[in-house]
Amino acid sequence: MKIGSIDLGERPVFLAPMEDVTDIAFRLMCKQFGADMVYTEFVSSDALIRNVSKTHQKLTVSDEERPVAIQIYGREVEPMVEAAKICETAGPNIIDINFGCPVKKVAGKGAGSGMLRNIPMMLEITREVVKAVNLPVTVKTRLGWDHDSKVIVELAEQLQDCGIAALTIHGRTRSQMYTGEADWELIGQVKNNPRMQIPIIGNGDVTSPEICKERFDTYGVDAVMIGRGSIGRPWIFREVKHFMETGSKLPAESFEWYLDVLKRQVMQSIERLDERRGILHIRRHLAATPLFKGIADFKSTRIAMLRAETIDELFGILNNIPEQFNIGAEKIDLHQI
């Protein structure tokens, strides 16, 4: 599979762009575990051209994470074009346009998936961004605004005509947010449309190696993107790649092995930010990780872990978990938890 001239190999697996999740430290970790391409957190075009410092920090990319895409969002042509040009100077491999974010503060203002209610503007933004930069431009969007307006099959052709190099489809409407099950049937319809010539990337509810392979086999997508399934579990890419290559599950690791990965995430978060903000940032991963699911009577420890404010306090709790809950050195299969 190629996006522009970027060769991503057969059946590549990507890390989805996620706000407050896919910072450079997490992207690098997922890359080390086998992600074939990674995406930044989404970048507001308006904030970027206003030179907001926090927004500009999201543009930092490193050679170790390539190929990497910077994702931008907005609701007007000129700010999106200017933002794309700014992002291009940061040196990513791809510019990705977010027409899929469903949260109210984005979609409610007409950006993200809010653009699904203004298709002409979506297409105009896409055309102008493609013309403004020399990098491949891709789009990520949803099936439609709601159940009665699933427009993705026709919309995909229109976006392709704008000159994009690839299209990612999250298999939900905006009104679904992240509820219900992702509808991959419509993603498959787009992929199997003989008029579609660009790569189609499927996204939604990919939480295991088996599901990832099934999505490739059943729907014929060119790539699969993993989002929430990677939070607190960056090793999922290692598991997926092994299963895709061998057809067998990767041997399980010890509890301590998984715990060490999470502790590395904590340390990288603190190094990138500072102790207080780094710990706040990593709480989402600690809350979502499957590592602690199924441990009996873990509730009070979970609460203490998510309330910890210093590295000494947090690591004291984490390091005590194996002894506190009598977890030995045997391998554990997180798929069974």
Rank of each mutant, 00 (worst) to 15 (best):
I226A: 05
D274N: 15
E78H: 09
R142V: 08
F33E: 12
F216W: 09
I125F: 07
P17A: 11
P17S: 11
E19T: 07
S53F: 06
A156T: 05
V261P: 04
E82Y: 01
F26P: 02
N192C: 09
A69F: 07
A35R: 00
I321C: 09
N320D: 15
G180Y: 07
P12Q: 08
N203W: 10
K241H: 14
F292R: 00
E154Q: 14
V43R: 04
E309C: 12
G34I: 13
L186N: 04
R228K: 13
E78G: 04
A308G: 09
D217H: 04
N193R: 12
A69I: 12
M177Y: 14
S44M: 09
P251C: 10
C87M: 12
F26D: 03
S53L: 09
D312M: 09
A69M: 10
G112I: 00
A90Q: 10
D297K: 15
N193T: 12
A182W: 04
I86M: 10
A25D: 14
V43E: 04
D333G: 05
S175V: 02
N326S: 15
M244D: 06
K105P: 05
I270E: 07
N134E: 14
A25C: 14
V133R: 03
S269K: 05
R75W: 00
D297V: 08
Q71V: 11
L262N: 01
D205Q: 05
K150M: 15
I303F: 00
V240T: 14
L186D: 08
N51Y: 12
A83H: 09
C101H: 01
P234C: 13
Y73H: 08
N193W: 12
E76R: 08
V190Y: 03
A111I: 13
I236N: 10
N203L: 12
F292Y: 08
A83G: 12
A308Q: 08
R172K: 07
H285G: 09
A308F: 10
M1H: 02
R11I: 03
F255A: 03
T55S: 13
E271D: 12
S300P: 03
M121E: 13
V224S: 06
E124C: 03
V240H: 01
K150T: 14
F237V: 12
F243K: 08
H242C: 13
G316W: 09
V221D: 05
D205L: 06
G328A: 14
F42A: 02
P209C: 12
G227F: 07
G112F: 00
C162D: 05
R215E: 04
E313S: 13
E64S: 15
L334D: 02
K105N: 12
T168G: 12
D96N: 07
I3M: 03
F26S: 02
W184C: 06
I236F: 13
A182G: 10
I49Y: 00
L259D: 07
I327F: 05
W235E: 04
A84I: 08
Q32M: 10
V21Y: 07
E214P: 00
A25F: 15
L48A: 05
P199Q: 02
A16H: 03
Q336C: 09
G163D: 01
E239H: 09
